[in-house]
Amino acid sequence: MAPHGKFYWNELMTDDVERAKAFYGATLGWTFDAMPMEGERTYYVAMLGEEAVAGMMDKTDLLPPTVPPHWFSYINVDKLDARLKLLEENGGHVIRAPFEVPGIGWIAIVADPTGAPMGWMTAAD
C-alpha cells in the first residue's frame, strides 16, 4: 500500500505537450509512454529508465486558457472519504468530488484553506 500523507504523483498540465516532452527528455533524460484516455486525449507517463516518475497531459480543453501551464501534485491518503471530511472540517474544500481512475485509484481535487489546489488520492495496490 502506498504511504499515507506522502506526495505520490506529479503531472504537468501544459498547452504544448510535444515541446515539454522534448525539454524534459533533453534535460532530465525522460522518455514517454503514451496512454490513450477517453475521447481523443492522451496521457504521457514520464519514465526514467524503468521507473514511472511523472505524468503529462494537454490542458487545452480541460482548463480555462487563463490557467498557465503548471505542475500539479497528488498526495496519497489512507481513506479518501474520511480525509475529505477532515479537510472540510479544517477549512479546506473539495473542488472535484472523488472519481475512480481504473488501476490507479480514487482521486479528489481539493484546496487547502489558503486556496492551494492539489489532488488527494487513495492509490490502488
Rank of each mutant, 00 (worst) to 15 (best):
M1H: 06
A2D: 07
H4R: 06
H4A: 13
G5N: 13
G5I: 12
G5F: 13
K6Y: 01
F7S: 11
Y8M: 15
N10A: 14
E11T: 01
L12C: 13
T14K: 15
D16C: 07
E18G: 10
E18Y: 04
R19G: 03
A20N: 07
A20M: 03
K21S: 04
K21P: 09
A22C: 04
Y24L: 14
G29H: 09
G29F: 04
W30E: 06
F32A: 02
M35S: 09
M35R: 11
M37G: 00
M37S: 05
M37P: 00
E40M: 05
Y43E: 10
Y43C: 03
Y44F: 12
V45M: 15
V45Q: 12
A46R: 05
M47T: 01
M47I: 06
G49V: 01
A52F: 12
A54E: 11
A54C: 04
A54F: 14
G55Y: 13
M57Q: 09
M57E: 04
K59H: 13
K59L: 12
D61E: 13
L62F: 14
L63I: 08
P64R: 11
P64F: 13
P65R: 04
P65N: 02
P65Y: 04
T66K: 09
P68G: 03
P69I: 04
P69H: 03
H70D: 12
W71D: 10
F72H: 11
S73P: 10
S73D: 05
Y74D: 04
I75M: 14
D78A: 08
L80V: 00
L80A: 05
L80Y: 05
D81T: 00
D81A: 06
A82W: 07
A82M: 00
R83K: 12
K85V: 14
K85D: 05
K85L: 14
L86Y: 13
L87W: 06
L87E: 08
L87Q: 07
L87N: 03
E88Q: 02
E88V: 10
E89Y: 01
E89C: 00
N90W: 14
G91S: 08
G91M: 00
G91A: 11
G92V: 06
H93G: 02
V94T: 02
I95F: 07
I95Y: 13
R96G: 02
R96I: 11
A97L: 15
A97D: 15
P98T: 03
F99V: 08
P102Y: 15
P102E: 13
P102L: 14
I104Q: 15
I104W: 15
I104G: 06
G105C: 05
W106K: 09
W106V: 03
W106C: 07
A108G: 01
A108V: 05
A108F: 12
A108I: 09
I109K: 12
V110R: 10
V110Y: 11
D112M: 08
D112K: 04
P113K: 13
T114S: 11
T114L: 14
A116E: 11
A116D: 12
M118P: 03
M118F: 14
M118K: 05
M118G: 02
W120N: 02
W120M: 02
M121E: 05
T122S: 10
A123E: 00
A124K: 10
A124Y: 13
